[in-house]
């Protein structure tokens, strides 16, 4: 059975869209990421115009992240206080990032710089997390569940205690993390979960499961912000596509959160690092392989 998408102006198989949402939602619940890195390329592959794919994808991330937040909050894994400070930084970073994008575009090769930076970043994060988690898994008996934050992070000012995460952390570090994620969201058009999770775990010393739950809580607000902006400025949010995706994704997010509760921190980190490396490999392959067609419909990020 097919369903017509009013803004994309095309039809798609109903069950396939639901299933796709389910897979993305599962990853969202499991790792605390938005899932746009996976969904947008698949939507493009089935012929959804780029601008509609990115905007509608963000809309469904709202549902997946709300559902994931509810699931993680039930297990006490969302640190709302910590997440709110990151959000404030994110708003600042997003605003400045938008202006920066305008400036960078005038310098030329903006897409090149962004894509190469993205690949390098994913490679570094993926390799680091993979090695660290592997080491932790091998020495499980002796290793701590959560890595220690580096010394310089522990010396930053405005230290606050976060009872949910069970850590004492600098509010300045959280603001800076939020700022970085906001900038990334504006420049690269990604939610920033890929960066947020490793930074929370390794730099701030937040336990893995709390980091996943808090990360997905902050994604709710980033996604709402982008959805409203896309609907207002570009009119490219396809609500029918988004509703189908989000029905699948909000169920998938619950299942993902359930699975994440059964995994140990190291297992979760190693699985996440494998996905990060897979996405990096896919991006690198696309960058260096001559495309079959030298043209593509524009309009996305």
């Amino acid at each position: 059975m097919h369903i017509f998408l009013p803004i994309a102006n095309m039809d798609l198989p109903f069950l396939a869209v639901l299933g796709l949402g389910g897979v993305v939602g599962f990853l969202s619940g499991l790792f605390g990421v938005g899932g746009g890195f996976l969904l947008t390329p698949v939507l493009l592959m089935v012929g959804v115009p780029p601008a509609v794919a990115t905007a509608s994808d963000t809309n469904q991330i709202v549902a997946a992240s709300v559902s994931g937040t509810v699931a993680h909050a039930r297990s006490g894994n969302v640190d709302f206080k910590l997440g709110s400070i990151i959000l404030v930084g994110g708003l600042l970073g997003g605003t400045i990032g938008t202006d920066l994008v305008r400036h960078l575009r005038t310098l030329g090769h903006f897409d090149f710089v962004v894509k190469v930076a993205y690949v390098v970043m994913l490679l570094s994060v993926g390799v680091f997390m993979f090695q660290e988690s592997l080491r932790a898994l091998r020495r499980r008996e002796h290793a701590l569940e959560t890595p220690h934050p580096p010394k310089w992070v522990r010396t930053l000012p405005w230290r606050l205690y976060f009872p949910v995460s069970g850590i004492e952390c600098s509010a300045l570090a959280l603001l800076l993390l939020g700022f970085l994620i906001g900038m990334l969201a504006a420049i690269m058009g990604v939610g920033g979960g890929f960066i947020m999770l490793p930074v929370m775990i390794y730099l701030l010393g937040i336990p893995t499961l709390k980091a996943v739950g808090t990360s997905i809580f902050t994604v709710v607000f980033t996604a709402i912000n982008v959805t409203l902006a896309q609907a207002t400025v570009n009119g490219t949010v396809d609500v029918v596509l988004a509703v189908l995706l989000l029905l699948g994704s909000s169920i998938g997010a619950q299942l993902g959160a359930k699975v994440s509760r059964r995994l140990a921190g190291e297992q979760l980190r190693i699985a996440f690092s494998i996905i990060v490396l897979a996405v990096m490999a896919k991006m690198l392959y696309q960058l260096v392989t001559p495309p079959p067609v030298l043209f593509a419909f524009g309009g996305g990020h």
Binding site: N59, Q60, V62, A63, A64, S65, V66, S67, G68, T69, V70, A71, I224, T227, L228, A229, Q230, A231, T232, V233, G235, V237, V239, A242, V243, L246, L247, S250, I251, A253, Q254
Partner: peptide
């Protein structure tokens, strides 16, 4: 656009909360 965007966001929040 803003009304449409607001509706899209509300639907997503309701779906997310409902399923949650």
């Amino acid at each position: 656009g803003p009304v449409y965007g607001g509706m899209a966001v509300m639907l997503a929040i309701i779906a997310g909360l409902g399923v949650g």
